[in-house]
């Protein structure tokens, strides 16, 4: 007579070779391969790199006489840190002992929140970084006055009719504003392109798993 799946299961695991646990060595010191732990490690590394990098640049910028650029860049990066440290804490608090639905939902929410927060930030970050570079360069002082003023004077020699606004050529202001507008428009999108590489596949999979559980949950209301 044909066996039921329950019988196949029971009989199959009665054999002694079926349930041999793999040998575990120095488990505690092993590096986790779990996706959440990988994200945590990536996040921590990025935040440390941002802190160290922006502080180093602040110091270097002083000696390179581009302190304005260094300060603006530092403020921007500190804001990025300030926004992302709570996100890291939230990631660390995801409890793998919850039921699967809550666990997957929490993880999915975390990814979506982190994307939304950083996308919004990226909309401002790229234009502000651009402004930091331009303003920083303009006010860089190597002993012969500000670089921007020297460039403006040079332009006036070649094009004496150049219209200046607060000492800055008008066409340069217009070009700068166009670049800022483009960065505002595309800043979020540039960030999303990056994110798709990191989170796209994970998010898709989480959505599929959640959808499957939601189907089961909604059976009694259907």
């Amino acid at each position: 007579m044909e066996k039921s799946i329950e019988e196949i299961w029971k009989d199959g695991f009665l054999k002694s070779d079926a349930l041999i646990a793999p040998k575990i060595n120095k488990l505690y010191s092993q590096k986790s391969i779990h996706i959440i732990d990988k994200f945590k490690r990536m996040f921590r590394k990025n935040l440390i790199a941002i802190a160290v990098g922006s502080l180093s640049f602040l110091i270097v910028s002083y000696f390179l006489h581009i302190a304005v650029m260094g300060v603006l860049f530092f403020i921007m990066m500190m804001a990025l840190l300030f926004i992302n440290i709570p996100l890291l804490r939230e990631l660390e608090n995801i409890d793998k002992g919850q039921n699967s639905y809550d666990y997957l939902k929490t993880f999915s929410h975390w990814i979506q929140k982190q994307i939304a927060v950083n996308k919004r930030f990226a909309t401002f970050m790229y234009p502000i970084l651009f402004v930091a570079i331009v303003v920083g360069a303009w006010y860089s002082d190597t002993g012969n006055g500000y670089l921007g003023e020297r460039i403006a004077s040079g332009i006036l020699v070649v094009f004496p009719d150049t219209y200046l606004v607060f000492g800055v050529p008008l066409f340069a202001i217009v070009i700068g504003l166009i670049i800022i507008a483009l960065l505002i428009i595309f800043g979020g999108r540039i960030y999303m392109w990056d994110l798709n590489v990191i989170y796209g596949r994970v998010l898709k999979k989480l959505d599929e798993l959640l959808e499957d559980i939601e189907k089961i949950r909604s059976q009694d209301t259907a």
């Binding site: 793998k96 002992g97 919850q98 699967s100 989480l206």
Partner: peptide, 9 residues
């Protein structure tokens, strides 16, 4: 729960 959640992700 942990076993399943880890396997799923």
């Amino acid at each position: 729960r942990i076993s399943l959640n880890v396997c799923l992700t």
